[in-house]
Write a protein that binds this DNA or RNA. Sequence first.
DNA 1: ATTTGGAATTTGGTATTCCATATGCCCTTG
DNA 2: CAAGGGCATATGGAATACCAAATTCCAAAT
Lengths: 234, 234
Amino acid sequence: MDALAPMRAQGPLRTLRMSETAYEAIEGAIVRCELAPGTPLVDRQLSEVLGVSRTPIRDAMQSLEAAGLVVRTRGRYSVAGFDLDDVRELFEMRRLLEPPGLERLAADWDPAVVEELATFFDGAPEPGPPGPYEEYLARDHAFHKRIVALSGNSRLIRFYAIAEKQINRIRHYLAPGYEGRMKEVVNEHRDVCEAIAAHDLDAARAALISHLEAGEATMAKYLAQQQEKENPGG
Amino acid sequence: MDALAPMRAQGPLRTLRMSETAYEAIEGAIVRCELAPGTPLVDRQLSEVLGVSRTPIRDAMQSLEAAGLVVRTRGRYSVAGFDLDDVRELFEMRRLLEPPGLERLAADWDPAVVEELATFFDGAPEPGPPGPYEEYLARDHAFHKRIVALSGNSRLIRFYAIAEKQINRIRHYLAPGYEGRMKEVVNEHRDVCEAIAAHDLDAARAALISHLEAGEATMAKYLAQQQEKENPGG
DNA sequence: ATTTGGAATTTGGTATTCCATATGCCCTTG
DNA sequence: CAAGGGCATATGGAATACCAAATTCCAAAT
C-alpha cells in the first residue's frame, strides 16, 4: 500500500472532488503496476493512506470497478488480474474501435489532420532500448487516441479510453522487456500515415490492423513468458 | 418523481445491495421514459421516495452517469437528454459491436446456435400494430444480444449492453408510433439467419448491417418528427 | 420598476457512526 | 489430533451528521 502517497490538498483551483482525486491516485498506482494484481484494496486503509474519509474512496472504488481495474470478489475489493484472454479481448476492441476514425477522415478529408498524424514521432528521442520508454509510450498513445478521436463518436472514444487504460497497465507490467518493439512501432505508424496521405483507406486500415495484430502478438508472447516465469508449470 | 415506487425490502435472498436495487429502479424509470429527459434528480428526494438513505442513491447516480442515462451539469444531476447525434453514435456502436459475434460463429461453427438464432421469433404473436410491442422488443433484444454474446468478448458484451440500454430508451420514447417496423424487423432477422445457415459470413454481416442501418433510419426519422412536433421551428 | 445585496434554502460532497456479514483464530470436544 | 462451534475482528454497506457552494427569493435602495 506504500505505493500511494497522501493526497495533497488542492489549491484555490480545487474543482476536482476528493473522490476524483482519490480515483486518479489509485488508478495511477494500478496502471503503473505499483499495486500488483490481486492486492486487496481495503477502503479503511486507503482512506488512511490518502488522508480522506471512506466515502470518496468507495466512490473511487466503484469507478475503478467500472473501469475494469478493480474487481469485487465475495464482497472484497482487490486489484484486477489479467491474462492472455484479456489481451485478446482488449486488442479485439482496439481493432474494432480504431478504424472508424480512419474512415471518418477519409470521408471528411482534412490535410491538417493528416499532417498532424505524421508528426507524432517527429523530434522524438531515438527510440529503442535504452530509449526513453515513457515518452515513447506517450507518443504512441497520442497517435492512436488522435485516430480514435477522429471518429467523432463520444461513446466510442469513451470505451476506447477504458480499454486503453487496461492495455497500458499490461504494458507497464511487461516493461522494460517490452521496449524492443519501439522502432518497429514507429515504422508501422509511418506505414499507416503514408497510406492515409495516399488517400488509400483500405491500405490504411490494413496497416493499422496489422500494426495492432503485431502489438497483440508481442504482448501475448511476453505475457506468456512472464507468467511462465512466475508460475512455472502452471 | 411519482414514476418511482418505494423499494420493497427484499426477502431472505437479499443478496443485492440497496444501491443496486436503487439503480435498477431509477434505470428502469429512465429507460421506460417514465422520467423524462432533463428531469432533475435530487438525491434527497429519491432517497425519500425509494425509502433508503442518500448513500446508496448517490452510488446509483454514479453508475447511472457511467451508463450515460444521467448527466451532471454544473454539479446537479438530471436525466440525460438525447438527439439525432446520439442515434448516430449508438447505431455506429451497434454496427461495430455486433459483427464480431457472427465472425466468431463462422469460425467456431455450432449448429445448435444457428438453430437457436432462427427460433427467436417462433411462436411469437403476430407482429405488427397493434401487436404486443413489449414482447416484440424483448425478442428483438434477445436476438441481437445472443449474437453479441457469441463474440466471447466480455468487454464487447459490456459495452454493447450500455449502448443497448440507451437505444432502448429512445425506442420507448418513440413508441407507439415506432411499432410500424415490427414485421420488417422480423424479416430482416430471418435474412441474417438464412445467410448464417448458408455459411455465408459476408452475406450475414451485410444483412445485419443493412438491418441496423434500416433501424437507424427509422429511429432518426421518427425522432426528428417527434422533436419537430415538440419544438416547432427549433 | 429595476437592480442589487444578502439571507434562506437547496443540493452535492465529505466525514462519521452504526450495522450486518464474513473471515479467521482459538478453544473445546470427540 | 482432527473437527466443529463460537467469539473476536475485519470489511463492506447504509444511515446520519456536517459542511461548502450554488441557487433562489425577498427586500431595500436608487
